[in-house]
Design a protein around this nucleic acid. Structure first.
Lengths: 226, 226
DNA sequence: CAATAATTGTCTAATATTGAACAGCGCCGC
DNA sequence: GCGGCGCTGTTCAATATTAGACAATTATTG
């Protein structure tokens, strides 16, 4: 579903280099596990670059419900939505592990990209983001929860997973509860589907309790239950 | 939910001016009602600018279901996702009325923005898009279909509607079927909710059969049924 | 203008989903 | 190493949603 375009990886590296230069004199911010980087409504207009760790982005609804939008890992940038100029964060960013971040004011961020001729690259990056989200929206609207869970797992695996010979390993621990808020269903339901995937050997847990996704098998299964 | 940022409107005008210059020597493309501008998979990497008419963007799923992503009107740009470099359209773009378009190859589009110093503005525009879609995703995940329909109506009204003293008029005709594919539910369900909204006088139809949205009342109602 | 097609409003039975409960397990901190 | 806490797996009844069907209306189009 979401394809990794090689040239967008190339841009990512360039951007990392660029941001590394921009921030090499500032000391990293340490955010401990379970602590927030920012919460809904915060006005601080800065972009973050992850040196180490993982950050999850969660949006809350009017009542209590939550929706996890993404998990970002080392080398990723987040908080870029302040570039919209809307003011006020829309989501909460929380560390899933002890994390080191660099913070760049959003004006400086753009200036740096401009100086390094990366504006067009960043436009491409944002276009990919829009395209990905479009897929997510279409999935939420058109397919059932089992299918959505499958696609979400593939998506996470492709974004964060370490590649093994015939599978992808996800080292971040993601609870069923969290998966439920990504997929748009309830926790028990996720448990059932995960169990089913496990029985069909589309996924498994290794000795370190890391989730292993058999990309091919899972993809094939999802196609088969249309 | 989706606020119109005044400065993004300003950028839109600048972009319109810029694209007007770029395309003033090319003749507009005429697309008749119900005809496609492009369909899923098309390779042509061009951006479109709407001079007159409306274009809807629809994504299809593996099985038959569809999802309407957006309706664009005069002055809007669409097809920008080709800037992602992923190749191949993800959605189908269809004229809802007889429409006039200008077409710009995606390379030329970026060049023109660069020449007119609009790259940063375009980044802001894309960031707003990402933020909007994020809202849509969170809504699909966290709130029920009646609420989603309400929010969708407000969203459409703010994007396409003409403002009247205490309401917004939507002149494009949108069928319940189409609403269903935006909201992620079935047609009969949309009928019921629309009827309910009508009885509560949150919406109404004028003599020209245009849908009138009472923005305030509808917003208040949605907040009341949390 | 008449025929045809598309849209709407409404109803159902069949199905899927929720939310709440509870036991077992494993991890963490002390 | 022990207690507690959060996560998982499972169940169930209550509820919401779907996928038809149908007549009545409203557009379209030749």
């Amino acid at each position: 579903m979401i394809q990794q375009a090689p040239q967008s990886d190339q841009f990512k590296e360039q951007m990392q280099g660029s941001l590394f230069n921009e921030t090499k004199n500032s000391s990293p911010i340490k955010v401990d596990k379970h602590n927030h980087v920012y919460t809904v409504g915060d006005e601080r207009e800065t972009v973050y670059f992850i040196e180490k760790g993982q950050i999850k982005l969660v949006m809350g609804s009017s009542e209590g419900k939550e929706c996890m939008l993404a998990i970002h890992g080392a080398g990723d940038v987040f908080g870029e939505l302040c570039l919209s100029g809307l003011g006020g964060r829309l989501e909460t960013a929380t560390a899933m592990e002890d994390t080191l971040l660099k913070e760049i004011p959003c004006g400086k961020f753009l200036d740096r990209l401009a100086k390094d001729s990366l504006l067009e690259g960043f436009i491409k990056y944002l276009a990919v983001r829009v395209a990905d989200q479009q897929q997510v929206i279409a999935n939420l609207v058109t397919v059932d929860s089992e299918q959505r869970l499958g696609k979400t797992l593939l998506q996470i695996a492709r974004k964060l997973g370490k590649k093994d010979p015939r599978s992808i390993r996800i080292e971040v621990k993601i609870s069923h509860e969290e998966l439920a808020t990504m997929v748009g269903t309830t926790r028990p339901r996720i448990s059932v589907f995960m169990q089913r995937f496990r029985n069909l050997e589309l996924i498994e847990y290794n000795t370190e309790h890391h989730l292993i996704i058999k990309e091919k098998k899972l993809t094939a299964y999802l196609a088969s239950i249309l």
